[in-house]
């Protein structure tokens, strides 16, 4: 069995890098007594696998994590804690609360299930990601026009740095949804659904298309979609809304 966890990352902690998040989560798992397992070898590691890495400086309502549990850790359908949680039996909801509390402010577990292992890894199965971001100081009307033009055509040409080289690419194939959703005090808010295959397209790549020369404000991942039996769905739907700190 494994724990599948969906968590959010909001506010100041958006500046924490992906590898640091792994260390933070690992400490929280230990504090809660989650019956984690370790890799073999000279320096054993806690077994866990994250979904798609979130770029540093991005917020998220939809980060995913799978934690394999040791075989004897489910007792009467409940999670038998170990270590600092020794003696505790937690159902999913209790574990969700405990983990949320053990994580630093800004991280919040919004869904948690115990499920059988199997299926492809999160990293392999995610097909698209939903994003919400604002563009600093851009003019709403102009952004709206740019979106219209982009969606009408067959080309959205972007530039990005790859190993210090500028790579030009048409990413129209990967733009599933693109629209404006009001304005924050920093600028127009854009909602986008962008493909994660063959590579993850980042919202920052769109900024130059939508408002040439402008800078991105705060970007937030809102969804990660996987394909399941021909249908797109989220690996877990939130059982509670994350402590959303709305753009302010």
């Amino acid at each position: 069995m494994r724990l599948r966890i969906r968590f959010s990352k909001m506010g100041k902690v958006r500046f924490v890098g992906h590898r640091d998040v792994a260390r933070i989560v690992e400490r929280a798992l230990r504090r809660c007594g989650v019956p984690i397992t370790y890799s073999e070898g000279f320096s054993p590691r806690v077994r866990m696998s994250f979904g798609l890495a979130l770029p540093t400086c991005y917020e998220s309502e939809a980060e995913y994590l799978d934690v394999p549990l040791s075989p004897d850790s489910i007792v009467d359908g409940q999670i038998a804690c170990i270590g600092w949680g020794q003696g505790k039996l937690h159902n999913e909801q209790q574990m969700q609360i405990a983990l949320s509390e053990a994580l630093p402010t800004g991280f919040d577990v919004v869904a948690l299930t115990v499920e059988p292992k199997g299926g492809g890894s999160l990293q392999e199965t995610v097909v698209t990601c939903g994003w919400k971001f604002d563009i600093l100081g851009a003019v709403a009307r102009e952004v709206e026009d740019a979106i219209e033009r982009a969606l009408a055509g067959s080309e959205i040409e972007t530039e990005r740095k790859k190993k210090n080289e500028l790579v030009r690419e048409n990413i129209r194939y990967g733009v599933y949804d693109l629209r404006m959703d009001g304005e924050s005090e920093r600028g127009p808010i854009v909602i986008a659904e962008l493909s994660a295959k063959p590579r993850v397209i980042r919202p920052s790549e769109l900024v130059d298309v939508l408002a040439p020369g402008a800078e991105m404000g705060i970007a937030r991942r809102t969804h990660q979609w996987i394909e399941h039996e021909g249908q797109w769905q989220e690996p877990l739907t939130p059982s509670k809304s994350p402590q959303l700190k709305e753009y302010s």
């Binding site: 100041k12 902690v13 500046f15 924490v16 890098g17 640091d20 540093t56 400086c57 630093p104 402010t105 800004g106």
Partner: peptide
């Protein structure tokens, strides 16, 4: 580089 240096938020 390393913006997390400046955010605090430590437990």
């Amino acid at each position: 580089e390393k913006p997390a240096r400046y955010i605090g938020c430590e437990d």
